[in-house]
Amino acid sequence: MSSAATDDATKAPSKDGNSAPEQNKRSPSDFLKAVLGRPVNVRLSSGTDYRGVLACLDGYMNIAMEQTEEYVDGQLTSKYGDCFIRGNNGKQCLSERNFSINL
């Protein structure tokens, strides 16, 4: 295995795309397709939140965002025009401001 093995859990499932998602089912990759280009909240396991427009992401869950605001303990701490968030930073969740990506 390569050194990327630790990132495996964040990779896209290989089985997606072979059938239409069943009603009410929404796999992680369906979710990501739906949030691309939309405002999202990305939370790292450190508790830091990044809110911005999701520009793109890859199989390691590296993320590029635009108009990003950084929140620590709910307080706005900085703003970035564009920003790149590295994939394996124990991201916990991703949500659109109504979607969360907990990474």
């Binding site: 859990a9 964040t10 929404r26 992680p28 979710f31 990501l32 949030v35 909240n41 396991s45 869950m61 394996n88 124990g90 991201k91 916990q92 969740c93 991703l94 949500s95 659109e96 401001r97 109504n98 979607f99 969360s100 990506i101 907990n102 990474l103």
Partner: peptide, 12 residues
């Protein structure tokens, strides 16, 4: 309450 649909990373 996250009041959102979320994707939770399986790593943790």
């Amino acid at each position: 309450e996250l009041k959102a649909e979320i994707l939770l990373n399986g790593n943790h």
